[in-house]
Each structure stands twice: as structure tokens, then as C-alpha cells.
């Protein structure tokens, strides 16, 4: 029952994820037509508008077909891995993305580790010391973290550690593992700080709630050890809301990564997308946005599955989510 229930749940999530991706791809495709003016002009960018180029573009984007047919043909190309060529530099969008993805993934990985370890730990400590000095500090830190976007935090980090103290480089991504780590320390920290605030806030709130629950009191009444109560009773139950917020956290990561990359002039996907937007390079925008969206949807799917695994109430179909 358990296994088949699980498989059904994954199928159900997929049944939501696929249409979602289709709708997003449709939105992304429509960008060509959303841009002010003639789509050909939008796709042309700053290139000379000789009849030959225009004809190539019309053919490449099937602009003479009805809208929905254009979308179908475009989607077909995308599914085959053909994201087209950028207007500026006429490069394959896919290879630009591949080139830039490394920095973003590296950045997000370091931050994720910081967020999960430090965020959950701080939230736990604050909850255990509820009302104490550490707790008040953590709560205030949370408010500041949630209020400070990564680009603002980044500027302060840059100024203090890059300009005043001169400990870390102020731009670029570095080469090789260690150099890159050194270059990415401040950006990862800036990225982690804003997300960590959310994790700390949720962990603390749900820890406090769980600690007040009857089952914790009953476990204490039976003389269970503090360690057993903390891990098997409090932490396991308290982490469910944190996992539920996983989707929110992932979206926060990606959005803030864009800002961090711009702030620290890192050659990642985020700065690629901002470059593309600033230059209105439609094919490049479409390609990067699709990749981002795909990533978000996949991560959300994974988060949902993890959530299902740790909360038996969902697994056994008790709560309709």
C-alpha cells in the first residue's frame, strides 16, 4: 500500500509539473510578441535590417505561421535541445548557458550548505533559548535578513571585506577549485544570509510550536532522554514545515543568485539573463528563462517527494495536500 501510494503521489505531482512547464514555455515563447513593436524587429536587435536577414529570421521563427503553430514548431525545436542563437554575438544559446551554469551551481551549492547547517542550527538554538538573549539576537537577525535583499547585503560585504579589510576579491569568479572558493565566499555569504533568515524564522517558529505539544510533554513524562526527545520527537516534527517551505526557499535562491551575480560581477546564469534582458536579446532570454523554470519545477518536485517521505500522514493519504 505504501509503495503504490508513493508511486501514485509522484505520478500526481508529475501530472501537475508537466502542464506547468507547458504553460511556462508558452509564456516564454510569447515574449517575442509581448515585446513592443514588430516581433521581427524585436528579434533583429541592432543588426542591419536587410531583406535577407529578415527573411532568415521569419523562417527561423516561423513568423508567417499562425501563432499557435509558431509555438508548436518552436516547442519542437526546444525539446530537441535547440534553443536558437543569441542576437548579440550570434552564439548558440545552449552553449552560453552551459558555459555560465558552473558558477551559478557552485554558488548555490555553497550557500545551500551554509543555509541548511547554520540556518537550522540557529533556529533550533533560538527556540531552545526562547526569550533569551541569543533568541532575541536571532529574531532580529531574521528580520534584517528578510528585509535585506542579496544585492544590498552584497554591497555591505563587498565594502567591509573587499574594500576596507581587503580580505576577499571584489569581482570575478576565479579559476580552479580553491581560487573559485575564495572568490565565491562573499557572494555565497550574501546569498546565504537572505535565505537563511527565512529558514531560521520557520525553524524557530515550528520548533517552539512542537516543543509545546503534548507528545513532547508525554515523552518527558515517561523519562525519555533529552537527546531522544530532541531528535526523534522535536526535530523530526519541526522540520516538516521547513521542508514544506522548500519550494519557497529554492525560488528565493535562484532569484537572489541573479542579484548576487550582478553585484559581484560573476559570470553565471543570473548575470547572463540580466545581460540578455538589458540588451533585449529575446532568444537568449527565452533560453535562460526556460532553463531556470525547468530547474525550479524539478526542485519543487524533489521537495514534494521528500516531504511525502518524511510525513507519513501524507504517505498514507490522510491529508489531502
Amino acid at each position: 500500500m505504501m509503495r503504490s501510494g508513493m508511486a501514485r503521489l509522484i505520478l500526481m505531482r508529475l501530472a501537475i509539473a508537466v502542464p506547468l512547464l507547458l504553460i511556462i514555455s508558452f509564456g516564454v515563447f510569447s515574449l517575442v510578441h509581448l515585446a513592443p513593436g514588430d516581433p521581427v524587429r524585436a528579434l533583429l536587435g541592432t543588426r542591419p535590417s536587410d531583406p535577407e536577414t529578415l527573411a532568415t529570421l521569419r523562417a527561423r521563427y516561423h513568423l508567417d505561421d499562425p501563432f499557435i503553430v509558431q509555438y508548436g514548431k518552436w516547442l519542437g525545436q526546444v525539446l530537441q535541445g535547440d534553443l536558437g542563437r543569441s542576437i548579440n554575438g550570434n552564439r548558440l544559446v545552449l552553449s552560453s548557458i552551459k558555459e555560465r551554469a558552473g558558477v551559478t551551481i557552485y554558488l548555490c551549492l555553497i550557500s545551500t550548505v551554509i543555509v541548511l547547517v547554520a540556518g537550522i542550527l540557529l533556529g533550533m538554538l533560538a527556540a531552545f533559548r526562547r526569550g533569551g538573549r541569543l533568541d532575541r539576537f536571532v529574531v532580529m537577525f531574521g528580520v534584517f535578513g528578510i528585509s535585506s535583499p542579496a544585492f544590498v547585503t552584497g554591497i555591505f560585504l563587498l565594502y567591509v571585506f573587499g574594500v576596507v579589510l581587503g580580505w576577499f576579491p571584489t569581482f570575478g569568479a576565479g579559476r580552479g577549485f580553491l581560487d573559485r572558493f575564495w572568490h565565491l565566499t562573499l557572494p555565497s555569504l550574501a546569498l546565504a544570509l537572505s535565505i537563511m533568515a527565512i529558514v531560521v524564522k520557520i525553524t524557530r517558529a515550528s520548533m517552539i510550536e512542537v516543543m509545546d505539544r503534548d507528545y513532547v510533554a508525554f515523552a518527558r513524562a515517561r523519562g525519555m532522554s533529552a537527546a531522544r526527545i530532541t531528535f526523534a520527537y522535536i526535530l523530526r516534527n519541526a522540520l516538516i514545515p521547513v521542508v514544506t517551505a522548500g519550494g519557497l526557499i529554492v525560488i528565493g535562491f535562484l532569484a537572489n543568485a541573479i542579484y548576487v551575480e550582478v553585484t559581484f560581477a560573476l559570470p553565471g546564469l543570473g548575470s547572463l539573463i540580466v545581460d540578455a534582458v538589458q540588451r533585449r536579446d529575446i532568444p537568449l532570454i527565452q533560453g535562460t528563462t526556460l532553463v531556470f523554470a525547468l530547474f525550479v519545477v524539478i526542485i519543487n518536485l524533489v521537495v514534494d517527494i521528500i516531504y511525502t517521505m518524511i510525513d507519513p500522514r501524507i504517505r498514507f493519504g490522510k491529508v489531502a495536500s
Partner: peptide, 23 residues
């Protein structure tokens, strides 16, 4: 902690909230 459970135990009122929902 050594006294609780071994020498004296306490049961609470609401049976639906007394057990760990994940265990």
C-alpha cells in the same frame, strides 16, 4: 529524568495529541 517513567509516569488528557505523529 530517571524518576519519570521508572518510578512515576504521567498521562495527559487528549489521546489524539499524546503520541508522536511520526512514530
Amino acid at each position: 529524568q530517571q524518576i519519570r517513567g521508572r518510578r512515576l509516569s504521567l498521562m495527559l488528557q487528549d489521546p489524539f495529541t499524546m503520541l508522536n505523529p511520526l512514530m
